[in-house]
Design a protein around this nucleic acid. Structure first.
Lengths: 237, 237
DNA sequence: ATTCAAAATTTGTCTAGACGTCTATACATA
DNA sequence: TATGTATAGACGTCTAGACAAATTTTGAAT
């Protein structure tokens, strides 16, 4: 590589790497070459390469993880946590294609926790939905939802078909529902969740626990969702 | 200085300098010690000092100028450029005390430029106001304003008394006026302007040229304002 | 006193090397 | 199966030195 005078070398390297990313040589989520590889490629000192990478980190283009390497940062989705925010709307609004895939479903008896949130007696039959939400094929979140089975018998089929909980609930006469409470925490994903999110086990997930209620205030869904913290950012207003 | 294990030295230096600034050892606008002085003070390598300073620059706490040194960054005032933005309102809104001092005033014949903007014949008598706007005693801008003398006879006294153009205009029956056009450019200040802004000659100013009109659309003021680019940032929406 | 050029000062960039910390992996051990 | 250990790979920090670039200061010439 030959250097253009007047512009510092690290800036030219930054520019080149940015161009590589723009051209898709490195795609979002991809591992960038190691510092030593870049040293060989550009024929400069490691510190010079680091200066360039540092600039890319500052502008949120790449993310560096000590001991692992540098990765092209996926575009982080801002997920506003309103009482009426709907996943598909948010994703569509960003011109990305939403998809919600049902992984498994089961009818089982409500545990104490689930019963409490759904305001039913423990042991009441509830439907458990386990799903993955994606945007442009990239998994953003996995969710476990519980709904009272008596009220929503057959919702699994509708959900599978429409791929939208909002749509499925409409078939049961629920045109309007809203988020009642949301608890937010952070955790490391289980192997299963990490695998479904297509991320390594030691990158954290944002975990939310929420209850949706119908217009009368009756709980209709209790859910635990794990968002990939590399791809989603929750916005509270 | 002794280093606490577990936290990198540059971060500890950053922390210390930040504390110094918070305690007023270095005040906004002050020159920080040179890199070499900090090297001696902290007993580390120059690069380590630079790493710490770099962090302070990133967080907008200090500003570094090659060949001159580092300076504690003054809080930059966001100045929204709406059609009805008033200097005193903006400054008060940031909990800072506004002041507008008249430096000089003169009645003279309108130059071609002034006449054109005020929509009068060249040679018409106009009032020239030269003033400095301050927030908490820190000069933010110097302005040269021109108003038609016939319409605003005696406005100098009122302006001196009220220190507000908005107020002075009210006495002439103008309860409402708005910005018609604003042209923005950047320049280096003249010695006079630099001195009034209490800044060095080689720091640029933001220069605006604007025309205010009354509710009927008749030009009432043409002004050229130089904002200290270190203390004011114009916001266009 | 003013102007102009050289010197000194100060920050910016680049190279070189050493060692620390974190991750991933393989292997041995309990 | 689970846990600890060793090792290699990769990023993080710190030191050291040499120039380059921008600015300020100094001093000589006018």
């Amino acid at each position: 590589m030959d250097w253009e005078p007047g512009l510092s070398i690290w800036k030219q390297i930054e520019k080149q790497l940015l161009a590589d990313i723009a051209e898709g040589v490195f795609s979002p989520g991809d591992k960038m070459p190691t510092e030593m590889e870049l040293v060989r490629r550009f024929g400069v000192n490691r510190h010079t390469v680091r200066r360039a990478m540092s600039a890319l980190v500052d502008t949120n283009v790449v993310r560096v993880e000590q001991g692992r390497g540098a990765f092209v940062q996926e575009q982080i989705l801002d997920y506003p946590l309103g009482s009426k925010t709907r996943f598909s709307q948010i994703v569509s609004g960003r011109h990305r294609l939403p998809d919600k895939r049902l992984i498994s479903s089961e009818v089982l008896k409500a545990s104490v926790t689930v019963a409490q949130f759904l305001d039913v007696k423990p042991g009441t039959r509830v439907i458990e939905l386990f799903s993955v939400s994606e945007a442009d094929g990239v998994p953003l979140a996995v969710a476990t939802s519980y709904l009272p089975a008596a009220r929503f018998d057959g919702i699994v089929e509708i959900f599978t078909e429409t791929k939208s909980l909002t749509e499925a609930l409409k078939r049961f006469g629920i045109d309007d529902y809203s988020r009642k409470t949301t608890r937010i925490s952070a955790a490391l994903p289980s192997s299963r969740v990490a695998s479904l999110l297509k991320q390594v086990k030691n990158r954290p997930v944002i975990s939310t626990e929420s209850v949706d209620v119908d217009s009368a205030g009756v709980p209709i869904e209790y859910g635990v969702t794990a968002f990939s913290s590399d791809r989603v950012q929750l916005i509270v207003e």
